[in-house]
Amino acid sequence: MTAYLANLATLAAIFGILAATLNVAVGYAGIFSVAHAVFFGLGAYAGAQLALLVVPDALLAMVVAALVAGGLSLCLALPALRVRGEYFVAASLGLQMMATTLFTEAKGLTGGMGGLVGIPRPMILGVEVPTLALALTALVLILLATWLMARGSFGRTLRAIRDAESAAEALGKNINAAKALAVAFACAGAGVAGALFALHMSFVNVESFTLDQSVLIMAMVIVGGTGTLWGPLLGAVLLLSLPAGLSFLPFIPPTEIGAVQQILYGAAMTLLMIFRPAGLLGDMRTGRKA
């Protein structure tokens, strides 16, 4: 049972990182990206290849993954600088679809649909370490960075851009630099999560980095509460533990668990949006129409 719970906690921490970093873009800067799984995938492939070809050092894998994903965040930042709102959602959707195809076709780097197998377990200085400890440490550091950022002038700038971009620009804020930095931070964090995911799973393929995954991460942020520190983490834990918890309910026949999960998922999301439109920890005033 301990190993099972540790596995769930590891995935929750990894997805907590994903949700927390997406929250910086969505919740603070108002950049609604449905391509977060792309950067998750870039980090996963970078971390996996490093572990397979060079050394399975977890810290190095996370740094390389963050650099690759953060560096390539320009792919997302460029459209973010030109369009906003629903137009940006469409642009990020295009990026997600293009990246999924690239992940499938770039077999030399990603293994294509067959994926990368036999990724070594994470090590630090030659000693194997549990992914849970690494993931929790990374999660705490990212939450701390987010908290510090939100309290500072950069956080205020992002919120100003989110609420009234033109007004923020009129006040002399460097909109482009702030957006690009927010996107780079979010994508680098997703890269770190990707490296941890690859080292934890020992196998990655494109099916973990599709639009469905991006939507799931977005759902974690929305369910928990956008623009809050703990909301996305709560959303990640909730959306990951709900299916796991349901499989223990004795009155659901095991072969019906899939259908029951989907029904409960849908019902819970609908009820949540009715009664907590701003998310579980979100500001109730921001969720409803006046």
């Binding site: 596995n7 769930l8 995935l11 994926g115 799973m201 196998f203 990655v204 393929n205 099916e207 973990s208 299916p243 796991a244 499989s247 095991p254 072969t255 668990i257 899939g258 999960q261």
Partner: peptide, 13 residues
């Protein structure tokens, strides 16, 4: 029975 949805992540759980 455990539901995987034919996806690797759910399968590992």
């Amino acid at each position: 029975a455990e539901d995987t949805q034919a996806l690797p992540q759910q399968a590992v759980v």
